[in-house]
């Protein structure tokens, strides 16, 4: 297939997705959904922290475990990653489910366009929005609780970490989108998957002292490495050459290399299976 056509499919799908996002996500919607979910999780940590530290906000246990001084900056960055999970992992499946519910899935999938380009375009609209949300959340966090880095933040490293995480999560998104062809009920499945990613990825608490099996699962999830790199870059001022950072970046690259072809293949197979069964449009 000509690259020109693939690019046109991607672009059309991306613009349509972006328009949908902008059409429905008003300022109220943005605050209500994208900001409020992670923000209230951070506030929960704040309330717990106030109770556990007797109002001082200083936790010896936390500093000992992470080497960081401020648990609120830690959780703010962690929960800000939530927006990437929702856009990169669930954006594609949400788009498919939307087409199924609106009765347009068959029309989309019988056109001779490249479906991966279509899916990627749909996901990109959400991803762009999630990047904006991520930064808004950091600003919110800094304004409400203050940011207390131990060293000057390494912003380029944080950006590289975030970008690599999103690419690796996109591969997850392809697999999830494929599953939704047959399993349907995308929303309910995403309700199962996101707390799992938050839980195992250590977005809400450090997993340093957790058992090995937990850490193995955590290692397989891109957000674990993404959040760790971003936290180290912004709160500890780590450099690209730090041992832990190199391992984290390497893991993200490795996950992208492994997951992207697997995700693409699974998505294509499941799309074909749905076409064969005639269940593309059923929901």
């Amino acid at each position: 297939m000509e690259l020109r056509f693939i690019a046109r499919t991607f672009w059309a799908s991306f613009i349509s997705s972006l328009k949908m996002v902008l059409r429905y996500v008003t300022l109220r919607g943005l605050v209500a959904f994208n900001i409020s979910v992670p923000l209230f999780f951070v506030l929960t940590s704040w309330v717990i922290g106030q109770f556990m530290t007797g109002g001082t906000g200083v936790s010896g246990f936390f500093t000992e475990t992470t080497g960081m001084a401020d648990y609120l900056s830690f959780v703010t960055i962690g929960f800000a990653f939530n927006s990437f999970i929702f856009s990169a992992v669930f954006g594609g499946s949400h788009a498919i489910r939307g087409e199924q519910e609106h009765g347009t899935a068959e029309l989309v999938f019988v056109t001779p366009s490249n479906k991966l380009a279509w899916l990627l375009g749909k996901m990109m609209g959400d991803i762009i929005f999630s990047i904006i949300t991520f930064f808004i959340l950091l600003v919110f966090g800094a304004t409400l609780f203050g940011f207390h880095p131990k060293a000057p933040p390494n912003i380029p490293l944080a950006i590289v970490g975030i970008l690599l995480t999103m690419i690796a999560l996109t591969a997850f998104g392809f697999v999830f989108a494929g599953i939704c062809f047959t399993a349907k009920r995308e929303h309910e499945l995403s309700q199962v998957l996101w707390p799992m990613m938050v839980l195992f990825g250590g977005l809400a608490f450090p997993i340093t002292n957790f058992p090995l099996w937990w850490k193995i699962i955590a290692w397989m999830i891109p957000v674990t490495h993404g959040a760790e790199i971003t936290r180290n870059a912004l709160l500890l001022g780590s450099s690209f050459l730090d041992h832990d950072i190199l391992i984290g970046l390497g893991m993200l690259v490795l996950q992208t290399i492994i997951l992207l072809p697997i995700g693409t293949l699974l998505y294509t197979k499941m799309e074909k299976a749905a076409k064969k069964k005639g269940t593309l449009a059923t929901y």
């Binding site: 717990i48 556990m52 959780v75 608490f205």
Partner: peptide, 22 residues
């Protein structure tokens, strides 16, 4: 199946959020 699995990570998340402090 999801209805049974779904609450477990949420429950664990609610409990382990306290793990920041001990």
């Amino acid at each position: 199946i999801a209805t049974v699995i779904w609450p477990i990570p949420l429950l664990a998340l609610n409990i382990l959020q306290w793990g920041l402090f001990g």
